[in-house]
Each structure stands twice: as structure tokens, then as C-alpha cells.
Computed example of a mutant assay.
Amino acid sequence: MHSVNNFARRLFSPLLTPLEGGDQAYTYTPRARLILWVVGLLFLGLGTALAVFIPRGIDVAVYVPIGVFCLVGLFAIVVAWLGTERAVAKVWGNRR
């Protein structure tokens, strides 16, 4: 399991590196990671549900918000799963 996390951290390092960098003070609570998980799952679920229940023949522009919802959900899940405390705090903007 540890090697899976290492591989995933290397895979998502372009996303995680900017969030984990810096030396400014931050405030982190474990609840922030849990909320990030919940928000990520909600956004991913909403995007998936929209994609599944979309009627046939609808305008292609409808896929833009679906893609945005899914990408935001994936971003939140990746940061909640692999991000350090600093990365989670930066997502929420919790700095002293």
C-alpha cells in the first residue's frame, strides 16, 4: 500500500508541489481534510450523475460544467488523499 501512495504522489506531483511549497505559517485541522474528502466526493458524484442522466441530443456545451465538476472533485480527492497538512490548509486558505 505504501508503494501505491508513493507512485500516486509522483504521478500527481505537478498538482501537489505548488500547494506544499512555501514557508509561511498555516493552520491545519484534521476536520479540513475530512471536509475536503466530502466536497470532492460530492462534486465528483454531481458531475457523474449529470453525465449519466443527460438526455441524448443535448448541446455539447453542457459537457463543460460536467467536466468542471468532475475536475474539481478529482482535485479535492487527490489533495485530501495525498496532500500534506500544508496542502490541505492552502486549499482552504487557512493561513495565520
Rank of each mutant, 00 (worst) to 15 (best):
Met1Asp: 09
Ser3Trp: 05
Val4Thr: 06
Asn5Val: 11
Asn5Pro: 00
Phe7Asp: 07
Arg9His: 03
Arg10Met: 03
Leu11Tyr: 00
Phe12Met: 00
Ser13Lys: 04
Pro14Ile: 03
Leu16Ile: 00
Pro18Gln: 02
Glu20Tyr: 00
Gly21Tyr: 04
Gly21Asn: 00
Gly22Val: 01
Asp23Ser: 05
Tyr26Val: 00
Tyr26Gln: 00
Thr29His: 05
Arg31Cys: 07
Arg33Gln: 04
Leu34Val: 15
Ile35Asn: 08
Leu36Glu: 05
Trp37Glu: 05
Trp37Met: 07
Val38Phe: 10
Leu46Tyr: 11
Gly47Ser: 07
Gly47Cys: 08
Thr48Arg: 09
Phe53Glu: 08
Ile54Val: 14
Arg56Phe: 12
Arg56Ala: 14
Gly57Gln: 03
Asp59Gly: 14
Ala61Arg: 15
Ala61Gly: 13
Val62Arg: 14
Tyr63Trp: 15
Val64Cys: 11
Ile66Tyr: 07
Cys70Leu: 15
Cys70Lys: 15
Cys70Gln: 15
Leu71Glu: 13
Val72Gln: 15
Gly73Trp: 04
Leu74Asn: 13
Leu74Pro: 07
Ala76Leu: 11
Ala76Ser: 14
Val79Arg: 02
Ala80Ile: 08
Trp81Ser: 15
Trp81Met: 13
Trp81Val: 03
Trp81Cys: 10
Gly83Ala: 11
Glu85Asp: 12
Arg86Phe: 05
Ala89Glu: 07
Ala89Asp: 10
Ala89Tyr: 08
Gly93Trp: 05
